[in-house]
């Protein structure tokens, strides 16, 4: 899943009627230190994320695997709000990953 921060919301009255009642959030991808990356996307919010919150997004056809987006023209869904993120493996230990 993609790590991102909710940076905005989209309202669209004229849209595919299957998309009625969905909240569209603008999400900016972030790295593991929550620093913004230059990658934006619009995702349907299935967990009620607020502005500025760090979220996880399932993309592609996995975006339809919720009761809200089932059989709908959606390819990105916010499916988790991140409380905490721990990266425990320091970069220095990566070299002998497969030795």
């Amino acid at each position: 899943m993609l790590l991102g921060r909710v940076v905005g919301t989209i309202w669209a009255t004229k849209k595919d009627e299957k998309l009625e009642g969905m909240k569209f959030q603008i999400v900016r991808a972030v790295d593991l230190d929550y620093r913004p990356l230059n990658n934006f996307l619009v995702a349907v919010d299935s967990v009620g994320a607020g502005a500025g919150e760090i979220v996880l997004i399932a993309q592609g056809s996995s975006g339809r695997l919720t009761w809200l987006t089932k059989d709908k023209p959606v390819d990105a869904v916010i499916m988790a709000i991140v409380d905490r993120l721990d990266v425990e493996v320091p970069e220095s230990e990566w070299e002998e990953a497969l030795k």
């Binding site: 996880l56 499916m79 988790a80 709000i81 991140v82 409380d83 993120l85 721990d86 493996v89």
Partner: peptide, 13 residues
């Protein structure tokens, strides 16, 4: 891949 960290998310699907 190598597992490098963990994410905690109480509010999720």
């Amino acid at each position: 891949a190598k597992v490098i960290g963990t994410i905690w998310a109480t509010v999720k699907d």
